[in-house]
């Protein structure tokens, strides 16, 4: 279980106030909220971005994460799909992912890794040479999903992974998330569109407005938001 119970601030400015939620393995927990509610801050803070100060506790399967650097958290099985993946020209995706795979799962031979990588990239229809170099927004998101598939984490934070995608890409991304969940991965999905949820069946829904949790519930809550919006909070 990924248990989040914390406040987050940037340069003494509080962004999230006493946010408390948990993600069970093999389930999808959706975090919704209007622009500027602090949703992206949540996923960055949980991943361990050092620009954010966290007070409180973030526990993964009983282990306290708050004092750990980003890479440690990744090695423990945490993953984040970035809203704006960076480009690294010249660094090959395969080489980079093998290095990541090795640090998360231990050594793997080039040949064995090639099999894992090729299967994943084929199923996603991704053929990228360098890390996101020159890729479109949609391609970058597919690349993120490729990494999710290959690294096979225990918990995944998906930060607006659905934004800017066309229907086909949306389906591919949704399928990848479903597969991961079936394999027991707990997913924290940050979004402010309901459309994506048509493809996924979230188990829990949390609504954040102005840095505070205003309501928690199940899929029905999301449907309510779809009709009423956030203005009621």
């Amino acid at each position: 279980m990924l248990k989040i119970n914390c406040s987050v601030s940037v340069k003494d400015k509080k962004i999230l106030d006493n946010v408390s939620l948990s993600v069970k393995p093999g389930t999808i927990h959706v975090v919704m909220g209007p622009n500027g509610a602090g949703k992206s801050t949540l996923s960055h803070a949980v991943m361990g971005d050092d620009r954010y100060t966290v007070e409180g506790s973030i526990k993964m399967d009983g282990d306290e994460l708050t004092s750990l650097p980003m890479d440690e958290r990744a090695r423990k099985g945490l993953f984040m799909s970035f809203q704006y993946p960076v480009e690294i020209p010249g660094l090959s995706m395969k080489k980079f992912l093998r290095a990541a795979y090795k640090s998360v799962h231990g050594d793997i031979t080039v040949m064995d890794f090639k099999k894992v990588y090729d299967t994943a990239s084929k199923s996603l229809g991704v053929h990228t040479k360098y890390v996101n170099d020159g890729a479109s927004g949609g391609q970058k998101k597919r690349n993120e999903m490729l990494q999710l598939k290959v690294l096979n984490p225990k918990y995944a934070l998906l930060d607006e992974t659905d934004s800017g995608l066309d229907v086909d890409a949306l389906k591919v991304v949704a399928q990848t998330v479903k597969d991961a969940v079936q394999d027991g991965c707990g997913v924290l999905l940050v979004t402010h569109y309901l459309k994506f949820l048509e493809y996924l069946q979230p188990d829990d829904v949390t609504v954040i407005v102005n840095g505070r949790v205003v309501e928690q519930g199940d899929i029905k809550l999301a449907q309510k938001i779809e009709v009423e919006g956030y203005s009621g909070y």
């Binding site: 971005d49 990744a74 090959s92 992912l97 640090s103």
Partner: peptide, 28 residues
């Protein structure tokens, strides 16, 4: 770029390794 380093770190690479990879990508 700090963002690049952070990105690689989020995938489990140490900071030194992250820098190394970025530089080797640069000269590739």
């Amino acid at each position: 770029n700090d963002d690049q380093v952070r990105y690689l770190q989020s995938r489990g690479l140490s900071e030194d390794d992250a820098r190394k990879y970025i530089v080797s990508g640069f000269v590739e």
